[in-house]
Each structure stands twice: as structure tokens, then as C-alpha cells.
Design a protein around this nucleic acid. Structure first.
Lengths: 139, 139
DNA sequence: CTAACTTTGCAATAGCATTGCATCGTATTT
DNA sequence: AAATACGATGCAATGCTATTGCAAAGTTAG
């Protein structure tokens, strides 16, 4: 069971410690992006700072990416497989639901090409759409 | 001189106090979005909280909009004329320069239409592009 | 002139992000 | 197997931004 998780850590060059296995396992169970506080509450008693650093390590190694959804608290979510640490494939759109207050990745919704004014050069893009998510939409 | 500024406040239903005239005047001199701390430093000795509330009032009345550029600190910039407080016309793109660390509005660069997955409904969008701005681009 | 309301300033708080340092565990070397 | 080196963890402490409560000052209306 934990084999797959361990493999996933190793494939990203992350030492598979007990803590990290637990955190990754927890992350894989989420269908929304979570904050550090969510993680802290969701996992048994554990140190907030360690969790913080665990997420940071995961991010450096390309296992998770962080999302600034405009709420003021950073959210984290697992990356697609293609991420390699240096260049996150975070060109997908993020969605914040005004009703349930959850933040989701929309991995299949890409940010379209945008033509910038003269001499501006794009390196990263971050698009957050706010609205009603599929679960909260009564239609 | 201050006539125009005063008019601009009145047209948005904001009482033109001395403080507010100064803040608006300062904002009009900026070509980049500024943080509360920038405003505090840029203006003479003044109370941070008052400035904070001034910006908040301006925002409620549709005179400025805030930008979450991903740096963690909120930036503020003047709105286009069309804003009416309820619905900000903030469908333009914001640009954060990785070199000079400034945040700009790109009022003529609109966010393109994005087709969301089934049952997702969009209400607001926030697109921040990071890269090199025209001034910092050596080309 | 007084009362009502708005604006301002000070104090205080809360929450998140972040770093320093000590401890502990594991892996490596001898 | 013992000593050592390195990475991971946990605790303490700090900084910064955003935000609210309350009292003082200023402004407007009656």
C-alpha cells in the first residue's frame, strides 16, 4: 500500500521518512487544495513547522505546488507527474468556490495565450477564477 | 490643481477630506501598484491604520482596486473610470516584474474567455503574469 | 451652540510565514 | 561496532500584514 507512495517520493529524490509518507498520503486523499492549517488539523498531532518544511521540500522537488488563491492563506496541491522542481507545470487554472470556500486545480483548463504589450516578457502566470464550483452549483 | 482630485472623490461619493486628497494625489502619481507600506513611506508622517482605511474606503467606492500579486502583500492601484464600486472592472491583467519587483496594471490586456468544466460558474477572475517588464527588458 | 455623524489616531490582536537552534535518528566511514 | 556526519524533526521566537475596538478630533446639520 505505502509502496506506491514511497516510490513516488523516491522518484522525486525525496527521502521517504515516516512523516513524509503520512503527509503525501494525506495529500493524495484530498480533492481540493489545502492550507498548512488544514494539513495540521487533518493529520494527527504533529508539529506545524515540520509540516511547513515538509511542504516546502515537496514543492522544491516538484511534488506539490502552492496556490495563492487570494484568500491570504497559501494552499498546496499535488503536482501532475510532469513537474520537475525547476519548472512547475502550473499553467492550469485554479478555481476558488465562493460557496464552499474550497480551492481546486482545474488541470485540464489551460491558460490561453495572452499577448502582452511591447517589451513585456512572460515567465509565469497565475490565474485564479472565483465562482461556484460544480458541487455547489444547483443547476 | 486639487480641484480635479476633489471632483474625482465627489464623483465617487467620497467625502473629500484633507487626508483623502493627499492619498489620491499620491496614488495618481504612481505608475505601479503600491502596497500599504509604500503608501505609508511615500506620504509624510501619517497613521498606517488611517491609510489602510482610506484605501479600503476608496476600494468600496470603486476608486481603487487591490491586487494580489502573489508576493503576499496586497497592492493597490487606481481604477479606470468605469468602476462603480459594486462591480470592479478588474478584468485586465496584472503584471509583476521579477526584476524590479513592481506590480503594474495592464489595462489594455484583457483576460480572454475561458471555458470552464461542466457546472463551474465564473464570477471573478484574477490573472497575474510574472516576468520582465518593459523597463527592465534589455532588448 | 449643540447634537449627530464621520474621520482619524492609538492600542491591541490575530494569523500566517519564516528562521535559529538544539535534538534526534539514520546512514556512512573507519 | 563505534564514531561521525548529515538530514529531519521539534520547540521557541520573531516579523509582517491585516484587522478591529475605542476614544479623540473634526465636520455638518439643526
Amino acid at each position: 500500500m505505502t509502496k506506491g507512495i514511497e516510490q513516488r517520493l523516491k522518484s522525486k529524490n525525496i527521502n521517504p521518512t515516516a512523516m513524509r509518507l503520512l503527509v503525501l498520503d494525506f495529500l493524495m486523499q484530498q480533492n481540493a487544495a489545502i492550507s498548512l492549517t488544514d494539513l495540521e488539523k487533518g493529520m494527527g498531532p504533529s508539529d506545524r513547522i515540520t509540516l511547513y518544511r515538509t511542504l516546502k521540500t515537496f514543492e522544491e522537488k516538484g511534488l506539490v505546488h502552492h496556490i495563492d488563491d487570494g484568500t491570504g492563506t497559501t494552499k498546496y496541491a499535488l503536482c501532475m507527474e510532469e513537474c520537475d522542481g525547476d519548472h512547475h507545470q502550473d499553467l492550469h487554472v485554479h478555481f476558488y468556490c465562493n460557496t464552499c470556500k474550497e480551492t481546486f486545480c482545474l488541470p485540464n483548463t489551460k491558460i490561453p495565450q495572452i499577448s502582452l504589450p511591447e517589451k513585456f516578457r512572460s515567465e509565469e502566470m497565475n490565474l485564479v477564477i472565483k465562482g461556484i464550483c460544480d458541487r455547489c452549483n444547483p443547476d
